[in-house]
Design a protein around this nucleic acid. Structure first.
Lengths: 222, 222
DNA sequence: AACATATTCAATAAAAATATAGAATAATAG
DNA sequence: CTATTATTCTATATTTTTATTGAATATGTT
């Protein structure tokens, strides 16, 4: 007995706690919500629109995330706004998705196949981007919806949501290379944008990274 | 239709894949197995002994981990030996546990309370340890069971499993400070050892880290 | 070849997670 | 104060996960 017994009980409690936290993020709907919230805060209504879930179901999943300290809420008038609890969690989430894409063959293949279809294999790294910005021969385009751009974006980027890109083509110059970026590692908006741009004679590449990564990187730098 | 539809389906598939992987590690029994395997490979029998699970249940959980590319197997005679699939996963697992202890109040409190009980708050960092080793005024003790020591340990450490520490006290000199280490962040063996040593008039502290972390650190250095 | 041992498989019962629909709550506007 | 709107809560049916039991498989021993 004495301390071995206690140790056993303690360990069980700790493992229960850990698995409880992991269960909270081990659900496709909730992962989608987390991806959305990694762009910035959103109301329940906003999440429902972005995901297509029923409102009660979305609310229920948000409660699970809240009870497990993954998201926090802010109330304003009729609306309750949800956001990720902090950057520590965002960093963990990024690690999980990076691991999944790199190490789980099934998932990596899926993402690569999609990227091949979109014809934008040769992505630009953050370091390259900074060089290109220094030489001023790049046009950085944020192709996410306007509200996501509004709640945070890479400095110097131009907001052209994918839906309106076709109609805005005439405003773009042919001289500089265009670099498009969007959301998390599974977001294909930038790839679609690159495809469209290339078809119209522009020089375009995807950014190998996304807004949440950029945000974390800036925090680490400053 | 066109690409927005496809995007939606693609995303759903990716989120399903991610949640499938997370479900595999979102279970207290399987987390315990992962913790054990982060020390080195073990047979099914060995895992059963370490956890107290029934053999069929352990086997079933191991299948789940195997089907999700978290562990791999090696067959030798009657026995099937399980081990973690690679260091990428180990690093992710460490990130998850570190996050949980630091960011989930409930879990952090639990671990700290236990550490307080064990009277070994002032842990030695890896950097401190390297300094102390350089000055040769430290005795590094691995208090895990002998077989775990055998399958890998910090260079220069002495193996004294906690169970036999009382009987080996007479062999230890009083001159140097003793630093004890054990397994993952939830392992309290080192804390128990420090408590016991202090009660017997030795100068002793716990290492703020453990064998799996050391292994990863060495891999990153070399 | 017959047997013993370690592990996995298959079937089942129990427990937990999920989605849905409708009621309840809380905040605001008129 | 009442009506409206956004969100959460409650109850329920469905699906998924888990533990247990005993049978099946595979490997090595005599």
């Amino acid at each position: 007995m004495s301390f071995f017994m206690m140790d056993k009980e303690f360990k069980d409690m700790v493992y229960e706690g850990l698995s409880k936290m992991l269960k909270a993020i081990a659900n496709a709907n909730r992962i989608e919500v987390i991806e959305i919230l990694s762009q910035g805060e959103k109301s329940v209504e906003g999440i429902v629109q972005a995901t297509g879930m029923t409102i009660a179901n979305a609310s229920q999943h948000l409660q699970v995330l809240k009870n497990n300290n993954i998201v926090k809420t802010r109330k304003d008038g009729h609306f309750v706004y949800y956001s990720l609890i902090g950057n520590e969690f965002l960093a963990l989430h990024q690690h999980i998705t990076r691991y999944a894409v790199n190490e789980i063959a099934e998932l990596g293949k899926m993402v690569n196949r999609q990227r091949l279809v979109n014809d934008s294999q040769h992505a630009v790294s953050f370091d390259e981007l900074e060089l290109m910005i220094g030489e001023q021969n790049v046009l950085l385009v944020d192709v996410r919806p306007a509200d996501e751009f509004a709640s945070g974006h890479i400095t110097g980027a131009l907001s052209i949501p994918l839906e309106v890109l076709v109609t805005r083509l005439k405003d773009l110059t042919n001289e500089n290379e265009i670099v498009a970026y969007c959301r998390g590692p599974f977001c294909m908006l930038a790839d679609e944008a690159v495809k469209l741009l290339k078809e119209n004679g522009y020089k375009a590449r995807r950014l190998d990274g996304n807004y949440p990564e950029w945000k974390l990187r800036q925090l680490q730098l400053s």
